[in-house]
Design a protein around this nucleic acid. Sequence first.
DNA 1: ATAACATATGAATATATGTTCATGGATAGA
DNA 2: TCTATCCATGAACATATATTCATATGTTAT
Lengths: 122, 122
Amino acid sequence: MTDAPILQDITVCGSEDEAEIESLHNALIDTPTANRLAEIFKALSDPSRLRLISLLMEHEVCVHSLEMAVGMSQSAISHQLRYLRQLNLVRFRKEGRHVYYALDDDHVRELFAQGLLHVEHG
Amino acid sequence: MTDAPILQDITVCGSEDEAEIESLHNALIDTPTANRLAEIFKALSDPSRLRLISLLMEHEVCVHSLEMAVGMSQSAISHQLRYLRQLNLVRFRKEGRHVYYALDDDHVRELFAQGLLHVEHG
DNA sequence: ATAACATATGAATATATGTTCATGGATAGA
DNA sequence: TCTATCCATGAACATATATTCATATGTTAT
């Protein structure tokens, strides 16, 4: 994977149209952007995480409640929450022996909502 | 992973508030919805696919042009296009020895655009 | 102090995923 | 016809990922 594709040599199959070349050139997202985009979408790319996130959409919920609701093991939930934590997608708050998690990224909140809308009504 | 979590037994940590229980119950997405959501987000969870999709956002492009633009091997591109094809996210059109691909799902188009907006300006 | 509860974490494991390599098929041009 | 070009595909491989298991930490209750 060459990191710096040679954009001057693009030929838009059959037409050497300069406008087409410019179009492709402008449309291509750069590597760091692609990486950050992939990172945020990857957080939403697993059914278990999506179920957890759905529970966190409205308000904070403690791990135990999540466990009761989603039917995953406590360990699996904790691992996924750590994953979301490391991406700064959720925040947590300790209260006694409970830990309350909440969504902390409006990007994923909006993407989740939009994706859900599309999936639900086809 | 139990497929049918027992929602009646949810206790929202510290409060047996019925409203809270209802809230969790309503927020939780069901398994098929979670799976379809994950599927669409997974398509957007890889930097290479995102670069390809970015090139297909404006108009159809043939595989060769994609190869010139993204700096991936022809084989890797073809495999990724097959992946997107199997999810009905792209359509293709043959013309001579060229094959033109185009985005064929407005959901991913909108999700990509929204994600890009968020990532670009922080 | 002891037991029960809520959560986190490391290791192990099984599976999924993305790429390369080699090759095949189809089409256009000489 | 022969060759070059464009694209697809299966196999192999290396890496990533999600879960389980065992265990550790801290908190509340008795």
